[in-house]
Amino acid sequence: MIQRKKHNNVLPGFGPSLGFTIFYLSVIVLIPLSALVFRAAGLTWGEFIDTVTAPRVLASYKVTFGSAIIAACINSVFGVIVAWVLVRYRFPGRRIVDALVDLPFALPTAVAGITLATIYSPNGWIGKILEPHGIKIAFTPLGIILAMTFIGLPFVVRTVQPVIEEIEVELEEAAVCLGANRLQTILRVIVPLLLPSVITGFALSFARGVGEYGSIIFIAGNMPMVSEITPLLIITKLEQFDYRGATAIACVMLLASFSMLLVINLLQRWTRRFAE
């Protein structure tokens, strides 16, 4: 372990580096974000509540949060399978697949959006196959779930993967020595070990889905009350120069993001404690 001396740190530059960090953080992040809160404070309480609980806004929360939950569930199932396969099994092309998992991080959301919309539209590669069966994905709420699944996948894989790598073989061996079969070992030993990281991955994927804009708007169809996500509604209000409305809804979104950030931080602490 690295020994940390609390006193007499001989390294230079603490004052200037911390000073610049706080200055830059304030100018770029804290002051602009507080502007949003102050602007919302300029609204009367009644006006604020009316804006953020208007039927069209409520419908957009339902679409956004509902789709994000479903997408995070899909990602939790397939993300764990992908992470497990990448760590435990050897197959040709494994390294390339491993690198490719991060594609949704690297691919700009607009590109992902137009591509998914094209593939899943009725005459696209996959849409063509689904269309005769009556399944429509592009321009329906299903498209929103699809886009959120795309952008959320790496969060689950990259949270669960290191935990699978860290599982001590001895634990599994002990289970076998005590007479457990493979299924019992997985259910009683491995699943409890993975659970905190899966929940954290779920939360991260959900949080990303809720805020996502670029990859969704191309595929969603954007019908008010049906397939309109909250971030789009904020932009719509802005384009109508309804700054007060946009600010109020953005405030609700910000509050939701901060609550999720808090939950994720607690979850990550839990995961880390589990790992030790």
Binding site: L25, P32, A35, E212, Y213, Y243, A250
Partner: peptide
């Protein structure tokens, strides 16, 4: 606290990241 604040922009919706500058 500083670490959490540095991470803030990742948890804010991109739309809000733009909106705050419009508001200022």
């Amino acid at each position: 606290l500083l670490l959490t604040l540095i991470d803030l922009p990742f948890s804010v919706s991109p739309v809000i990241s733009g909106l705050i500058y419009v508001l200022i």
